[in-house]
């Protein structure tokens, strides 16, 4: 039935160029990269960052589809101006995440809530205790990221979670370097305060139950 299924197209290779740019840090983009290969190599990147940007589980597959459709549509716009495919891709997925969050707000009644359940994909090497700890950490990080506005959330995800450099984050967010540093500074400050509040609440609860 699916023998004739369409496949992700193989777009002509980009011209041979130094896609790594001067920013460094990320692996150079192979010159024979195609949307199909990008899907294989960066699906996890797209998925995890959609989640970190606040796209809920109920619609994350739709959002991921949209990201790769936009990638296909805009493939020709990816060129040597970008230091890496990740910085380009993050710009796309950030806009898709924004669209889906807004759409979700408009039709929140139609999307079942997953509550506070965090699904963590088990890895073969992880034991039960490690999985529980990771699930708790993900839930806590989600709360911390939820406390930030969209711009601060994005730069924390890029720099502190994805471990990009600030210049790369600035490129991805299409802001100048000063703005990126300012956002990171205020975002980290706010994140620390949020964590301190959460810890204080946890301590109070522990003392109350003791």
């Amino acid at each position: 039935m699916v023998n004739g299924a369409a496949t992700l197209p193989t777009v002509r290779p980009r011209p041979d160029e130094d896609a790594a740019g001067a920013l460094g840090g990320l692996a150079p983009t192979p010159t024979d990269l195609t949307p199909r290969r990008l899907y294989d190599s960066h699906f996890s990147f797209v998925w995890r960052n959609l989640r970190r940007l606040g796209v809920p589980d109920a619609i994350i597959e739709d959002a991921a589809q949209d990201v790769f459709l936009v990638v296909h549509r805009r493939w020709d716009s990816f060129d040597s101006r970008w230091s890496s495919v990740e910085t380009w891709l993050f710009g796309i997925l950030m806009r898709v995440a924004r669209n889906h969050r807004r759409s979700l707000r408009r039709r929140a009644w139609a999307i079942p809530s997953t509550g506070d359940i965090v699904e963590v994909v088990p890895s073969p090497a992880a034991g039960p205790a490690e999985l529980v700890a990771r699930r708790e950490a993900v839930a806590l990080l989600d709360r911390l990221l939820d406390s930030l506005d969209e711009e601060k959330r994005a730069i924390i995800v890029l720099v502190d979670v994805e471990q990009m450099s600030v210049p790369q984050a600035a490129e991805s967010l299409e802001v100048n370097l000063n703005t990126a540093y300012w956002r990171l500074r205020t975002a980290r400050t706010q994140l620390r305060k949020s964590l301190a509040r959460i810890r204080a609440t946890e301590n109070r609860d522990r003392e109350g139950s003791a």
């Binding site: 369409a6 992700l8 597959e61 991921a64 790769f68 994909v121």
Partner: peptide
Amino acid sequence: ARSGYEPNEMARARVRRGVEVKL
């Protein structure tokens, strides 16, 4: 938390199928 956001293989396959259908 960094490694706790990975997709599973079923999700990967479903999204791929969806992209291919739309394309």
